[in-house]
Write a protein that binds this DNA or RNA. Structure first.
Length: 605
DNA sequence: CTAGGGTTAG
C-alpha cells in the first residue's frame, strides 16, 4: 500500500517535470521559430543562432530546420549545410530545405546530389521534396533526370499533387517536351491558376503562341479564377512571339482592368510585345510609366528601339541607364550592339564592344562576337568578321550563331571562299546543316557557279537533308497571311506583292540605299527551270514581309539586314495604297468598356 | 520547408 503510493508520487513528479521541461522547450521553440521566420537580416539570424546554442536546443530538429531556412533565405548555403551536417536526426524538412537552398543559389546539381544521399537514409521524400527536385531538373533542362523523378513521383503516390504536377508541366516545358507537359496537364483532376499558367507558359516558350492564347481563352471562359500577373505575362509574351498586335492589345486591356498595369514585369512584357508588333511608340509609352525601371525593362526598350532602326534612341536609353547607375548586363550589350549594327554606327559599336569589360564589367561572349561579326559583315567588312570569328573561343551552342551570321554575310557580299569555310564549320559541328547547304548553294549561284550550286542541291536530295522553308506572316484584321521564303508565286496576292516590292525597291534606291548589286537566286532542284532572279532590294523586302510589324495594326516585321527602317512608315502608307485595305485592328472593344467608352484603340493611357 | 512571370539571337 505504502510502496504503491511512493511509486505514484514518483511517477507524478516525473510527469510534472517532464511537462515543465516540455512546456519551457515548447515555449523556446515557438519563440525561436517566430524569431527565425521574421528575422530581417543576417546579423539577427546569427544572434538567434547563438541564443539557440545557449538554450541547448541545438540538437532539436525543428529549431535547426528554422535556422537552416533562415540561412538559406540569406543565401548562406554553407552555413545551412554545416548546420545540416551537425544534425543528429535530419528529417524530410531538413533535407528539402537544404535542397531548395542549393536550387536558389543556382546549384541545382548539388540539390540532386543531396537527394541521392537522402535515398541512402530512412527519410522519405514528400511532395515538397519532389517539387524542389523537379524545379532543379527544370533549371538544368534535364529531361532524363526529370523523367526519372517523375517516375518516382508516380511510384510514391504524389502523381496527383497539384504543386508537383505544376512543376512537372514547367519542367517538361523547359525541356521543350510540350506533349509530355500537356499529358500531365490533362491528367490533373484539380487545376488552379498556377497549373494553367505553367501550361500556357510552356506553349509560349516553345513557339506555340496560338496554343497559348487558345488555352488562355479556355481559362478565362471557365471563370473560376482571375488571371494573375504571371499568367498575363506569358500571354503577352505569346502575343509578342506571334506579332499579334490585336491579341496583345486585348491582353493589355485585361491587364489594366485587373489592375496589373503597375507590375513592372507585366509592363516589361508589354514593352517587348509592342516593339515586336511594330508599335515601338507604344513600347515607349508603357516604358515611361515604369517608375524606376531596372536593367530588364531598359534592355527591353533598348532592343525594341534597335529592332526598329532607332539606333540613336537605343544609345540614349543606354546612356540614361548608365547615368542612373543601373548596371547593364550581357543582354543589354546585345541590344546596343544590335542598335549600332542596324543604324550603321560601326565605330560606336566597336567602341562599346571594346569597353564592355573594362568600363562596364560585362564579359563579351559569343552573342557579342556574333553582333560584331554581323556589324562588320553587314557593311562588307567580311574579312574582318572572318578573322574575328576565327580568333575567338566559342562554346558549342554559340557556334551556329556566329558561323551562321558569317555565312549570311559572306553570301551577301559574294565571298564564296568564306561562305565555304563557314558552311564547313556548321556542317562539321552538325549544326544548321540544311541551312548551311542552302546558303552555300545560293552563294555559289550568286557567284555564277551554277555547277556547284546545283551539285549541293542534288547532294541534299541524295542524303535526305531537308530544309524547312523559312516563313513569315502578316496579320490584317482577322486574317493571317503566311509567306514562304522564295516562294512568292504560291501566294494568292503574288502580283500585288511583287509590284509592291518593286515600288519599295525604287523608293529605297531613291533614298540612296547602297546595298549589294547582285540578285537573289532561288535554285529549285525539282523545277530547275523555275530559277528566278529578283533584285536584291526586293529580296530584302520579300524576306521582310511578315517579319516586321507596323503601327496601325499591320504586322510586318523587318529583317535584320534591312537598314531602311525609317522608311517603315513610308512603306506602311504604300502598303495601304497598294493593298487597299483598312488596317485598323477592330478587336479592341473591351478598352471602350474599360474607359467608359472614351477610349479608342491605342490611347488607353 | 514546396509550384507559376519578363529581356538577345536564330
Amino acid at each position: 500500500m505504502k510502496s504503491n503510493l511512493v511509486i505514484t508520487h514518483t511517477v507524478s513528479r516525473q510527469h510534472n517535470s517532464l511537462f515543465r521541461y516540455y512546456h519551457t522547450n515548447a515555449a523556446a521553440k515557438a519563440y525561436f521559430t517566430e524569431k527565425l521566420q521574421t528575422c530581417k537580416n543576417l546579423i539577427s539570424a546569427t544572434t538567434t543562432h547563438s541564443n539557440v546554442l545557449k538554450s541547448g536546443l541545438s540538437n532539436d530538429t525543428f529549431t535547426t530546420n528554422g535556422l537552416i531556412n533562415c540561412y538559406v533565405r540569406f543565401l548562406r548555403i554553407n552555413h545551412a549545410h554545416k548546420l545540416f551536417d551537425e544534425m543528429p536526426q535530419p528529417n524530410v524538412v531538413s533535407w528539402t530545405s537544404l535542397m531548395a537552398g542549393y536550387v536558389n543559389c543556382g546549384r541545382p546539381v548539388t540539390a540532386l546530389w543531396l537527394f541521392h544521399q537522402m535515398q541512402g537514409t530512412l527519410v522519405l521524400p514528400n511532395e515538397f521534396t519532389f517539387s524542389t527536385l523537379i524545379n532543379a531538373c527544370s533549371i538544368l533542362a534535364s529531361i532524363d533526370m526529370g523523367r526519372r523523378i517523375h517516375g518516382l513521383v508516380e511510384v510514391m503516390g504524389f502523381g496527383s499533387n497539384l504543386v508537383v504536377c505544376s512543376s512537372l508541366i514547367d519542367m517538361y516545358g523547359k525541356c521543350n517536351h510540350v506533349d509530355e507537359a500537356r499529358i500531365v496537364f490533362d491528367s490533373m483532376y484539380v487545376r488552379n491558376v498556377v497549373s494553367w499558367t505553367s501550361m500556357i507558359t510552356t506553349y509560349a516558350q516553345n513557339a506555340q503562341g496560338h496554343c497559348a492564347l487558345q488555352l488562355f481563352r479556355e481559362f478565362t471562359q471557365l471563370r473560376l479564377e482571375k488571371p494573375n500577373h504571371f499568367m498575363l505575362c506569358s500571354v503577352i509574351s505569346a502575343c509578342a512571339s506571334l506579332g499579334s498586335l490585336g491579341s496583345g492589345k486585348v491582353t493589355h486591356g485585361i491587364v489594366i482592368r485587373l489592375w496589373h498595369d503597375t507590375n513592372d514585369v507585366v509592363a516589361t512584357a508589354l514593352v517587348d510585345m509592342y516593339a515586336k508588333c511594330g508599335c515601338v511608340h507604344y513600347s515607349d509609352k508603357v516604358f515611361r510609366r515604369i517608375p524606376n525601371p531596372s536593367v530588364i525593362p531598359y534592355t527591353s526598350m533598348i532592343v525594341g528601339a534597335a529592332k526598329y532602326g532607332l539606333g540613336t534612341l537605343s544609345l540614349q536609353l543606354f546612356q540614361e541607364m548608365i547615368d542612373r547607375r543601373i548596371k547593364p548586363n550581357d543582354v543589354t550589350f546585345v541590344g546596343v550592339l544590335h542598335a549600332c549594327s542596324h543604324s550603321g554606327l560601326i565605330d560606336k559599336g566597336l567602341e562599346l564592344f571594346n569597353s564592355m569589360n573594362g568600363k562596364y564589367g560585362v564579359m563579351p561572349d559569343t552573342k557579342h562576337y556574333t553582333c560584331i561579326a554581323d556589324m562588320l559583315g553587314r557593311v562588307g567588312r567580311v574579312e574582318e568578321a572572318y578573322q574575328l570569328a576565327k580568333s575567338v573561343h566559342v562554346e558549342r551552342d554559340g557556334y551556329s550563331m556566329l558561323w551562321g551570321t558569317l555565312l549570311a554575310a559572306s553570301r551577301l557580299h559574294g565571298r564564296v571562299d568564306i561562305a565555304l569555310e563557314a558552311s564547313r564549320q556548321l556542317i562539321e559541328s552538325n549544326q544548321q546543316v540544311a541551312g548551311a547547304y542552302v546558303t552555300l548553294s545560293n552563294a555559289y549561284a550568286l557567284a555564277g557557279d551554277w555547277e556547284n550550286a546545283h551539285q549541293l542541291r542534288s547532294e541534299m536530295k541524295r542524303t535526305g537533308i531537308h530544309k524547312e522553308p523559312g516563313s513569315s506572316w502578316i496579320e490584317i484584321k482577322d486574317s493571317t497571311y503566311v509567306f514562304h521564303a522564295g516562294d512568292v508565286s504560291k501566294c494568292s496576292q503574288a502580283n500585288e506583292i511583287l509590284s509592291l516590292l518593286k515600288e519599295l525597291g525604287h523608293r529605297m534606291k531613291e533614298r540612296g540605299y547602297v546595298g549589294g548589286t547582285a540578285g537573289l537566286v532561288f535554285v529549285d532542284v525539282e523545277e530547275e527551270a523555275k530559277e528566278e532572279i529578283v533584285s536584291l532590294h526586293s529580296e530584302k523586302f520579300a524576306l521582310a514581309f511578315g517579319l516586321i510589324n507596323m503601327p496601325g495594326g499591320v504586322t510586318i516585321r523587318i529583317m535584320k539586314n534591312l537598314r531602311m527602317c525609317r522608311d517603315c512608315h513610308e512603306s506602311f502608307k504604300l502598303i495601304s495604297d497598294i493593298v487597299g485595305r483598312d488596317f485598323v485592328v477592330r478587336d479592341v472593344n473591351r478598352f471602350h468598356h474599360f474607359k467608359n467608352g472614351s477610349c479608342t484603340c491605342g490611347d488607353f493611357w
